[in-house]
Amino acid sequence: MSKFFDRLFTVIDKTAEAGARKTAMQTGRRSFLAKAGVALAGTMAMPLLPFDRSLGGLAMAATGAGGDVNDEYSCDYWRHCALDGNLCSTSGGTMTSCPPGSEASKVAWVGTCRNPNDGKDYLVSYNDCCGKASVASSTFCFRSERERPGYRMGLHNDINWCMANTNKGYHCTVSVVVGLADA
């Protein structure tokens, strides 16, 4: 049995050596280093770019159609009118605070949501919680009522708002009432 493995490893070793020699003859070190440098620089710059969290053509996202407008765990809750992301209240945090191990994004977007209980419009600040991986069991909501075009950063919810934080990993979103919207 030992001879079998010795022969097998010899064949593998010779095949790998032949492949390495052939590659070395066809490509130069400088060419390889240049391509590797470009690839490395490109991958390092990727986290700096904002990315679109919308579902693109799959805009059938969870809105919980027919849900309770007074249930904070539902996508139909009135304060979630411009929320695009996972609910922190179902991801280990609350509606207004990030889960342990994550931190609120340094930038946010604002929506104007109507409270059906008093008929008033409220400004709601949506902050992404950053620094932790998303939880598969959390509730994902995609609501864009009265959303502005994407070129208006502060009014658009399809951006990774964690890009301003040290740890750019998105976890969930909180919705904090800022105050009454002026008429």
Rank of each mutant, 00 (worst) to 15 (best):
residue 74 S to E: 15
residue 8 L to M: 15
residue 64 G to D: 15
residue 170 Y to V: 02
residue 26 Q to K: 12
residue 148 R to Y: 14
residue 29 R to P: 01
residue 161 W to C: 00
residue 61 A to W: 09
residue 117 N to M: 14
residue 170 Y to E: 09
residue 144 S to C: 05
residue 169 G to A: 11
residue 32 F to P: 00
residue 22 K to I: 10
residue 97 S to L: 10
residue 66 G to Q: 06
residue 123 L to C: 01
residue 102 S to H: 06
residue 168 K to G: 01
residue 107 V to E: 11
residue 145 E to T: 10
residue 64 G to L: 01
residue 22 K to S: 13
residue 180 L to K: 07
residue 98 C to D: 13
residue 79 R to K: 15
residue 132 K to D: 08
residue 36 A to H: 09
residue 115 N to R: 00
residue 86 N to V: 02
residue 43 T to A: 13
residue 33 L to P: 01
residue 79 R to A: 14
residue 67 G to C: 14
residue 151 Y to M: 14
residue 130 C to E: 02
residue 70 N to F: 13
residue 30 R to V: 03
residue 48 L to C: 11
residue 170 Y to I: 03
residue 167 N to L: 11
residue 181 A to D: 08
residue 52 D to G: 00
residue 177 V to K: 12
residue 172 C to T: 08
residue 46 M to P: 01
residue 105 S to D: 05
residue 129 C to W: 10
residue 63 T to G: 07
residue 154 G to F: 08
residue 106 K to G: 05
residue 175 S to I: 03
residue 85 G to N: 09
residue 142 F to K: 03
residue 63 T to I: 12
residue 175 S to F: 15
residue 159 I to S: 06
residue 80 H to E: 04
residue 44 M to R: 11
residue 7 R to W: 15
residue 88 C to P: 07
residue 130 C to Q: 04
residue 69 V to I: 00
residue 29 R to E: 05
residue 17 E to W: 00
residue 56 G to N: 14
residue 39 A to F: 10
residue 57 G to S: 13
residue 75 C to R: 10
residue 24 A to T: 05
residue 2 S to L: 11
residue 138 S to Q: 08
residue 175 S to T: 03
residue 95 M to W: 00
residue 4 F to T: 10
residue 79 R to M: 15
residue 84 D to W: 00
residue 181 A to C: 04
residue 44 M to Y: 07
residue 73 Y to H: 12
residue 62 A to Y: 08
residue 91 S to W: 12
residue 75 C to N: 10
residue 127 N to I: 01
residue 50 P to C: 03
residue 147 E to V: 08
residue 139 T to H: 05
residue 14 K to A: 14
residue 83 L to A: 11
residue 49 L to Q: 13
residue 20 A to G: 04
residue 79 R to V: 08
residue 164 A to H: 05
residue 31 S to M: 09
residue 149 P to F: 12
residue 81 C to G: 12
residue 23 T to G: 00
residue 92 G to L: 09
residue 55 L to Q: 10
residue 79 R to L: 15
residue 50 P to F: 07
residue 174 V to F: 07
residue 171 H to S: 15
residue 10 T to Y: 12
residue 13 D to Y: 06
residue 112 T to W: 03
residue 180 L to A: 13
residue 149 P to K: 13
residue 69 V to C: 02
residue 148 R to C: 05
residue 106 K to Y: 01
